[in-house]
Design a protein around this nucleic acid. Structure first.
Lengths: 170, 170
DNA sequence: AAGACCCGGTTGACGCGTCAACCATAACGC
DNA sequence: GCGTTATGGTTGACGCGTCAACCGGGTCTT
């Protein structure tokens, strides 16, 4: 390690400014959104991701694998988190009939109520701290930037390729 | 909770696209950069932040408080993390003479070597997965977007105001 | 000078995320 | 059919991040 042959070009002022801004924004924005969500709804960003995936699913049930694809988590993370959510009564684990090693997770009534209550706060917060601050041009610029970055990331990880392409509408 | 009077406007297609892209990018990009940094240098993103702040400081020493301002962490997080870094030999804790409740943290020789070795990989990774993918216009757009968001965040938290203003060159 | 309050920093508990090991079942090769 | 391998999911250990409580030394008021 640390024996790379090529020395990386230093950052230009413009690059420095962009990177520093992005870094700062991402760190503060995500903590702000997460804190606010937890405070107002009792759900973490992670909870919300799971619950809204389940909400969108037919019959509010999803195979573990499908859920994993949806949120792009490691399987152990998903398992741990679903365990905790189950004890909180947000979610229910059932056995899978097609594949008896599999598991199916279902939204409980409490879980459904929680996401639905939260989604509004969520949208409002995202508006307040991001979307409403940007011009239409900036919104588009942001989409294009993320598109480029996601495409590059997908290049390294074939697993993610489908996801990124889907996001770009390919 | 969840009893807000006003229902938030739903997202337009453009907003939806921007938010979804940003969310995905931020999640995958930060995990990619962090994983890569750890793998190649043995330092986490958090370690790197601390060490580079110390490296930039005169005499490679910084008051706990100053360090906290620099990285914008909760004090307990800083304390815990510095404790771990100390046992790893990256950093050294000394008593403060001006204020005997205070603490001063110093970069060890090993710590200095580690950051310096890492900084190159760091820059290369940031180029690969972000900066080199963007046009100059996009770099500027990113700076402006983060500027707007940071300004909004600062508005809520007076503590952060100085930092954001500094970042915008006010 | 004494008490109240403030502030820098630490501690402990707890939920989270990752890694590696593991278990059970399914799919494959023969 | 039987052994092998691949796969869906769980578990345990460990480092991390947050919250709330705490400690001890400054500071301010009177």
């Amino acid at each position: 390690m640390a024996t790379n042959a090529t020395r990386a070009r230093a950052l230009s002022a413009r690059e420095e400014r962009a990177w520093d801004g992005y870094r700062r924004m991402q760190s503060l924005l995500s903590s702000q959104l997460n804190r606010q969500l937890i405070q107002e709804t009792g759900l973490s960003h992670a909870d919300y991701a799971i619950l809204s995936a389940l909400l969108a699913a037919p019959d509010h049930r999803l195979r573990g694998l499908a859920l994993r694809c949806e949120v792009q988590w490691e399987k152990s993370r998903l398992s741990h988190h679903l365990g905790r959510m189950q004890t909180r009564g947000l979610v229910l684990r059932e056995d899978c009939v097609e594949d008896s090693r599999g598991a199916v997770f279902r939204l409980t009534e409490a879980g459904r109520a929680a996401v639905e209550a939260a989604s509004d706060d969520r949208v409002a917060a995202v508006r307040t701290y991001l979307l409403d601050l940007l011009t239409p041009d900036q919104l588009d610029a942001l989409s294009e930037i993320s598109g480029a970055v996601l495409a590059r990331l997908a290049q390294d990880d074939p697993h993610r390729r489908a996801v990124a392409e889907l996001a770009r509408g390919v």
